[in-house]
């Protein structure tokens, strides 16, 4: 009897071990949350883009047909592209330096990067608003150094948006790149040098190609983030260079035009998910993050 009971319990345990294999039930709370408060609202918004003010695709037609909106699309891609390029070009040498630097100094640099990343987004943007003014510190310094005679217009235009966004995006390029460059085996480079390659050849033929997946992943990530950015363009940009996210917010908040807002959101969503799919396809889900 007792033996039977024990055996039964053991069987039960083994069963629980096996049952746990499925494990789907653990994901249910998260799944419910996502379906109820993420998938449903987003689909609801998309539905409104084809039902308001009446059934049809007229919102999309207006979006594509209007010069003003097309300019905003073009501007959004331009800003995202420039910010991505700048972040990669500036971020690459920093990531590289972080890998090879003496440990103490690389820790200091890491701390600075993390500090800037964790500092409240609005605080950083506010600082740039004041720094970049015509009468701000940067213009005053440049004029004091005799580099310029009249103050440059650095804010309320593309320059301001680019500076502010590059500032925010840099860590997102640097940190993943450090991991990629660190994982490169120095022996390969040594071998290259032994075969007579000079430093430039080593860089263009070995280091750069080996780190290219990291560069591409980081760049794509930054590009996607930049496309949908709202706060920084809204505060540092001018009336003539609105970005897509701002336009969506304006449709909904100021113009109360859910149809157009939904349509613009859908366009942004599709572009983002496409790029996201590319990212997943080439770099795997676990790499993002």
């Amino acid at each position: 009897m007792a033996i039977l009971a024990t055996a039964g319990r053991d069987n039960g345990r083994r069963r629980t071990l096996q049952k746990r294999k499925s494990g789907f039930s653990f994901a249910v709370p998260a799944l419910l949350l996502i379906i109820l408060f993420f998938v449903t609202p987003v689909l609801g918004l998309l539905l409104r883009s084809v039902t308001e003010p009446e059934l049809g695709l007229q919102n999309y037609a207006e979006l594509i047909g209007s010069g003003t909106y097309m300019r905003i699309f073009a501007n959004t891609f331009l800003v995202a592209g420039v910010v991505t390029a700048l972040s990669v070009v500036i971020g690459y040498p920093v990531a590289w330096a972080l890998v090879v630097m003496p440990r103490y100094w690389s820790q200091v640099v890491f701390a600075i990067i993390i500090l800037s990343m964790w500092t409240n987004l609005l605080a950083r943007t506010y600082a740039w608003m004041v720094l970049l003014q015509r009468t701000g510190v940067i213009n005053k310094t440049l004029m004091g150094l005799g580099l310029i005679d009249t103050p440059l217009t650095l804010v309320n235009n593309l320059v301001g948006v680019t500076i502010g966004m590059t500032y925010i995006m840099l860590p997102f390029v640097i940190l993943p790149l450090v991991g990629v460059i660190r994982s490169i085996d120095p022996a390969i480079l040594r071998a290259g040098a032994l075969c007579g390659a000079n430093r430039l050849q080593c860089f263009t033929h070995i280091l750069l190609p080996l780190s290219l997946p990291g560069v591409a992943a980081g760049a794509l990530m930054v590009f996607v983030m930049a496309l949908g950015y709202y706060v920084t363009p809204a505060l540092l940009g001018g009336t003539a260079n609105m970005m897509l996210a701002e336009m969506i917010a304006q449709f909904v908040q100021s113009l109360v035009n859910w149809g157009m807002g939904g349509a613009a959101a859908f366009v942004l969503l599709v572009v983002t998910l496409l790029l996201y799919a590319v990212l997943l396809r080439f770099f795997g889900a676990s790499r993002i993050g």
Binding site: I248, G261, T272
Partner: peptide, 9 residues
Amino acid sequence: LPVVVLAVA
């Protein structure tokens, strides 16, 4: 996903 899309939705 761009936060603004989620926010509006």
